[in-house]
Amino acid sequence: MSLLALNGVTRRFGALTAVDAVDLVLDAGECVGVIGPNGAGKSTLLALMVGDQRPNAGRLTLDGRDITRLAVHERVRAGIARAAQIPQTFASLSVLDSVRLPALYGAGLSDRAARDWVDEVLALCGLADKAQATAGALGLLDRKRLELAKALAARPRVLLLDEIAAGLTEPEVDTMVALVQGLREGRAILWVEHIPMALRAACERLIVMDRGAKTLDGPFAQVWSDPGLQAVYMGVPADAAA
């Protein structure tokens, strides 16, 4: 059975349909890349998955359980976490405490279990030496790492990554890719990113979104060479590109 399934999920903002009847299935152990032009509905899709937005139509299931009506904190506890595009830091908390919070509440760990788990997450995300630093004082790369660490600390089975490599230098992107590759075991990862090389290295499946709809979904290489992808980005009709 699929881990996370979206059936006909639609989100409208007035006259604009940001996400249009998207069907999507994620299985444990897979890393799926999502690309699409600005405004294609990628971030809204993730917002619908974590519960920031409620769909106007359609339903979401996690392990076969309907989660469409669940609030954000309930979905985190059920196993869906997102590293947001703009790092959502707790300015006055330490890095350690910022990661401890989702370990306690999201993952539901005891104080003792959370302590070990947080150390592990910080080491994994390359923040071990900054555990006592104030989150608000971190640089961009570290804030991105912290955003990922917070999502990871909740022990999600579905990990959503929203442009976690955006704005990073090439070596930093490589670091992120290596990190993501180490996270896939036992969970599904959905990674929205504008950097094709990062997705190519980390994902074996690729989804293309355009104007709210999922236009392509399949093995990475196949979707990558699909004329439809060029049509989306270059604005040429699919048949002309072919």
Partner: peptide, 17 residues
Amino acid sequence: LATLALRDNEGAARAAG
């Protein structure tokens, strides 16, 4: 800890569970 997190960033506190 949840209260301090709430003070800093309500949305992120919610996202942490």
